[in-house]
Design a protein around this nucleic acid. Structure first.
Lengths: 150, 150
DNA sequence: TATTGTTATACTCTATAACTATA
DNA sequence: TATAGTTATAGAGTATAACAATA
């Protein structure tokens, strides 16, 4: 029997390689699912975190998502300019801003989550509920090795 | 009992989000593990594929790795300039180049794989052999949804 | 002194379009 | 006509350093 050639060589057994490829598949399909909304993965992430933590400041959002302070600035500005997030000076710490999802942002988030639900269902179509749960668990255990940002 | 606050909101249940974060953890640790070698994730991928397929041309490498032709050019040039890959005109198709890992490239790949082995062991330290296998399987099933590049 | 947000900047990855030379 | 490789270019994500205002 001929040994089946493995075109990816050592990559085929590397978790890091497959994480990279699978993540890229998700990213590409996410973009397709969001077409027309103007929302990208990072922006959706911020919107979701602000929505779950009304009044949070942008440094904290960055820490939760692994985004550096310096890079948060223009991202938040995009959301403000799009009218999805409201920003106010924090009365108790005048260096900081408090962020809230606007009415329009809430609707955009709701719509996005519907699209994402569909997009995830498609990419995980062959997965049992158990397999999906297991995947989330294993990924979560990897994420715990993340060094703090900033 | 107080409902435990979930700071990531809807993200916490999204496979795409956790893939992104876990992949980023791996990428950052990969960079740390490769410090001083000059090899990045993409370059290691190319080196591994060329090594597994001596004489392959760069278009085929790109197709295997999901890298566009246009972006392959400078990546291959980096590997050539670093002396890790040799390039020759393909005698049977003078449009194409054939690629081979050089002696030095072979040594670099071998060293890189040792570092990567350690890096993966660290990030998957809490994983049983079964769990690692399952993760690779689940990721592979997601990858199959990748649209062809180019 | 430390922290919040900001600006400026640079590198990498990825994407498209238009070109050449060969097939 | 199609394919292999190239060039030019642009968008997006991410990284560092230095600064002002406030704590």
């Amino acid at each position: 029997m001929a040994a089946n050639h493995n075109p990816h060589g050592p990559l085929s057994q590397l978790t890091g390689y497959h994480l990279r490829r699978a993540s890229s598949v998700f990213a590409a399909d996410f973009a397709r699912a969001m077409e027309g909304t103007g929302l990208r993965q990072v922006l959706l992430g911020i919107l979701a975190v602000v929505s779950a933590n009304p009044g949070i400041n942008q440094g904290s959002v960055g820490r939760l998502l692994g985004i550096k302070r310096a890079n948060m600035v223009s991202l938040i500005n995009e959301l403000i300019d799009a009218g999805l997030v409201d920003r106010e000076v924090d009365a108790s710490d005048r260096r900081a801003f408090t962020l809230k999802v606007s009415r329009r942002g809430g609707a955009a988030l709701k719509d996005a989550l519907v699209r994402i639900e569909l997009h995830e269902q498609q990419l995980l179509a062959g997965f049992t509920a158990d397999e999906s749960r297991i995947l989330l668990d294993l990924l979560g255990r990897i994420e715990r090795h993340e060094p703090a940002v900033d």
